[in-house]
């Protein structure tokens, strides 16, 4: 038997490998790559040039959960791409100008002319599906932490914020599609919470009131 396997034609070997891979794939975790579209906010933009830096843990954010029993399944929820997409859309609409930074600001760093730099983090993500709760809704809950720093990395403000999304059990909808939808709702909620909260964070409010006004830039600087 093993001999026939060794000398089997290439296509048969490929078939066996594909079959084995298909069986193994059935044992893997349920993966959700969050995808959605996010609208720009309907706001008067704040007269600020904001820098934003997405760390690797944020830009490639994913959440994994091991199955607790034989009947459960493991999950991997990859939300990094959707996070960046949503925050880019939101911040572009919230501020006069948004500048992406390649590195975290710090002393000695060459940073573009911005008023402040926002560094978002996802500190925690939890999900629930009907199999966990016996309630016919899919839920995603996230806790964000934001750092607002100066161009040389000095802290201006740091605060946390939660976001929540849920979606009902829908006929003919897979668990993955429902978790994706719940994540998109949670991201929208994060955007709504941030947009309405930002200027009310005490440290941000103080900074906005007392921040030094930047001198008007020359045309050449603007083009840079």
């Amino acid at each position: 038997m093993s001999g026939s396997m060794i000398f089997a034609p290439d296509w048969r070997r490929a078939l066996v490998v594909l079959g084995a891979l298909a069986l193994l794939a059935g044992c893997g975790p349920t993966e959700v790559v969050v995808k959605g579209s996010f609208p720009p906010p309907l706001l008067e933009p704040l007269p600020l040039t904001l820098g934003v830096w997405y760390g690797d843990d944020f830009a490639h954010h994913e959440f994994s959960d091991e199955a607790t029993g034989r009947s459960g399944s493991s999950w991997v929820v990859k939300s990094g791409e959707a996070q960046v997409q949503m925050w880019d859309t939101l911040l572009t609409g919230m501020f006069d100008r948004l500048v992406h930074l390649d590195d975290r600001p710090g002393p000695g760093q060459v940073t573009p002319v911005v008023d402040a730099v926002l560094i978002p983090h996802v500190d925690e993500l939890q999900y629930a599906i009907p199999a966990h709760t016996n309630v016919k809704v899919y839920e995603i809950w996230m806790r964000y932490r934001f750092e607002l720093v100066t161009t040389d990395g000095q802290p201006i403000a740091e605060w946390t914020m939660s976001a929540y999304g849920k979606t009902p059990t829908a006929f003919m909808q897979s668990d993955q599609a429902a978790v994706n939808l719940a994540a998109v709702v949670a991201l929208r909620d994060a955007g709504a919470n941030f947009a309405t909260l930002f200027t009310r964070v005490p440290a941000v409010r103080d900074w906005l009131q007392h921040r030094p006004q930047r001198r008007p830039r020359h045309a050449a600087e603007v083009q840079l």
Partner: peptide, 13 residues
């Protein structure tokens, strides 16, 4: 409507 008026008619707002 929700997209046109985002973020003012989300469950939170």
């Amino acid at each position: 409507f929700l997209n046109a008026l985002y973020p003012w008619f989300e469950p939170r707002t």
